[in-house]
């Protein structure tokens, strides 16, 4: 409550000042107004993510704020190296370092199937535009999910929005499901590899096949299969 009281004051003052200014303008040419630099007005958002898969732990999520025209990925286009590293190995450091981000926070650890986690991000109101979120389905070669540039501008305090999201294929690593190629607990294999040996465009993931459905050298079993949606997200503005 206290921060809200504090931040309301400057905006009220500004409104009063503006009203005075308008009145003054009608009377004479003296439009000098004492201007105190406005204190930064902060807005806080919570983002609750839920892993909707059967047996696909998700790598620690990254929640990022950025301008409304920034996109972390585009379906049908090549994945950036930052997206490739996240999708193949769960490493979000390169995403966090992207110039387009105003700020970012990470989840505490793996988001296990069925589990939920709430992340909080606080932004100067001049920086409130759009948010994105990304996480790898770790028992895959390069499946990921997340939120791609969702506008939070204009959300009122206590306003909330719930959505579900699908799994994408980064298209940067062939979906061999083979031993040694999957970083998650189903395999314990390799994460990021700079080679690109798949279609090399981001698309909706076709799902995993598994060893029980005709892909003989797959390390995955029926429980690792998934269908959309794979991620539940609730965005709430709290302050």
């Amino acid at each position: 409550m206290k921060p809200t009281d504090f931040t309301l004051k400057p905006s009220l003052l500004a409104m009063l000042a503006a009203a005075t200014l308008l009145t003054a303008c009608g009377d004479d040419d003296n439009d000098t107004v004492d201007e105190t630099p406005p204190a930064p007005v902060m807005q806080t958002f919570t983002v609750t993510v839920t892993n909707l898969t059967a047996n696909q732990p998700m790598s620690p999520v990254i929640l990022a704020a950025h301008a409304s025209d920034a996109m972390l990925w585009n379906a049908g286009e090549m994945a950036s190296k930052a997206i490739e590293k996240m999708a193949e190995g769960g490493d979000t450091a390169d995403i966090a370092a992207l110039d387009v981000l105003t700020s970012s926070v990470n989840g505490a650890g793996l988001l296990m199937p069925g589990a939920s986690e709430t992340l909080t991000i606080t932004l100067d109101e001049t920086d409130v535009a759009s948010i994105s979120l990304a996480t790898m389905l770790v028992n895959t070669n390069d499946a990921f999910t997340g939120v791609n540039s969702y506008s939070i501008a204009g959300m009122q305090v206590d306003a909330s929005s719930s959505m579900k999201f699908m799994a994408y294929d980064a298209g940067t690593e062939a979906n061999t499901e083979a031993k040694g190629t999957i970083p998650g607990p189903a395999d314990g294999g390799e994460g990021y590899n700079a080679a690109r040996d798949d279609v090399d465009f981001v698309h909706i993931h076709p799902g995993v096949i598994s060893m029980y459905d005709g892909l003989d050298d797959s390390v995955l079993d029926a429980s690792h299969r998934f269908d959309n949606p794979v991620l539940g997200v609730t965005i709430t503005r709290t302050e």
């Binding site: 909706i204 076709p206 799902g207 096949i209 005709g214 892909l215 003989d216 959309n228």
Partner: peptide, 25 residues
Amino acid sequence: GVLGDTDPAGGMSDLDSRVHRWLNP
């Protein structure tokens, strides 16, 4: 969805389970 298989010269399906499967959307 389609089933496919990994045998281009036989098997049940002429589709490739590694290429032609999809999930919506």
